[in-house]
Design a protein around this nucleic acid. Structure first.
Length: 259
DNA sequence: AAGCACGCCAACCGCTTGAGT
DNA sequence: TACTCAAGCGGTTGGCGTGCT
């Protein structure tokens, strides 16, 4: 049996997402959750394959995404974890809240890899200089051995929460990021919840007119969970059909999102 | 001003994994 | 146990912006 292709090659849009598509996807996912990525575009009114929708949501539209402006701490974590784990970007991303595996992977290939190569070449030069100056001191390595890095989440430095408590005051130590609305966001353990709520509010401000953020279907505990009529009605009244809901075919598909 | 090269990053593609039957 | 399929993952591609000539 041939596996059904994840992307219908005919009629499905590819390439850059338009603001309208973003709005539709965000509207739908926040309302109904990502109950089935393959079916989702159909109900959301998108001419995209589910895979594309999933990627767009995870890498761009999802709340709490941090974009750009990697702090030195974050870069150090990436470098150390990559040293330890290799190209397991999703595992590395799990240690950097708000960062996506795709973004970390891109940042690695475009910045960190080159920087490391540069550092290594400098280190090699230093080594050769030292060797030429003193053959007897060769026991002392210039580059320190890889620092053992504990990836246990309980022990791993959590940049977003802990960075402000480390009081070394370089430019990078106060973790801030530029979000899509270019509002710098500071993370602080004591006010984290409030700040994140503000971020979500800011993020969805352009869509406020749709009221969908006030009716989210999110399993995430950090958001208020209000039950909208669109969700309740089909459960109460089997005859109820919402134009954009997953109940169209009369099957009850999980309306709860994973996020 | 035009053309080119390069870097960044969003998105795609194909393979793997794991849950469900 | 074997099979199917949705979701996850990592490598790669291509478009766009920017800087240089």
């Amino acid at each position: 049996m041939v596996r059904t292709p994840c992307c219908d090659k005919s009629g499905l849009k590819k390439g850059t997402w338009t603001p309208e598509e973003d709005r539709k996807l965000m509207d739908y996912v926040t309302r109904y959750g990502c109950w089935n990525w393959r079916q989702l575009p159909k109900y959301a009114g998108l001419s995209r394959c589910g895979k594309s929708c999933r990627l767009r949501w995870l890498n761009y539209l999802r709340p709490n995404i941090k974009r750009g402006n990697y702090s030195k701490e974050e870069e150090d974590i990436i470098i150390k974890l990559h040293e330890k784990l290799g190209n397991r970007w999703s595992t590395i991303a799990a240690e950097l809240p708000g960062r996506t595996d795709n973004e970390i992977k891109n940042h690695w290939h475009t910045n960190l890899k080159k920087r490391l190569l540069l550092q290594n070449s400098v280190t090699d030069d230093q080594k050769s200089d030292q060797n030429s100056q003193s053959e007897t001191s060769s026991q002392e390595e210039v580059s320190t051995p890889p620092q053992e890095f504990d990836i246990n989440p309980m022990n791993t430095p959590q940049i977003l929460e802990s960075s402000t408590s480390t009081s070394s005051s370089t430019d990078h130590d106060q973790v801030s990021s530029i979000t899509t609305d270019t509002t710098p966001v500071e993370f602080n353990r004591s006010s984290e919840t409030i700040i994140q709520e503000d971020r979500v509010a800011n993020f969805f401000e352009p869509y406020a007119g749709n009221n969908f953020w006030t009716e989210p279907f999110l399993a995430d505990n950090s958001y208020n969970f209000n039950i909208s009529n669109d969700f309740l009605a089909p459960l109460i009244d089997p005859g109820y059909v919402s134009l954009h809901s997953p109940f169209l075919d009369g099957e009850l598909l999980c309306p709860y999102g994973l996020y």
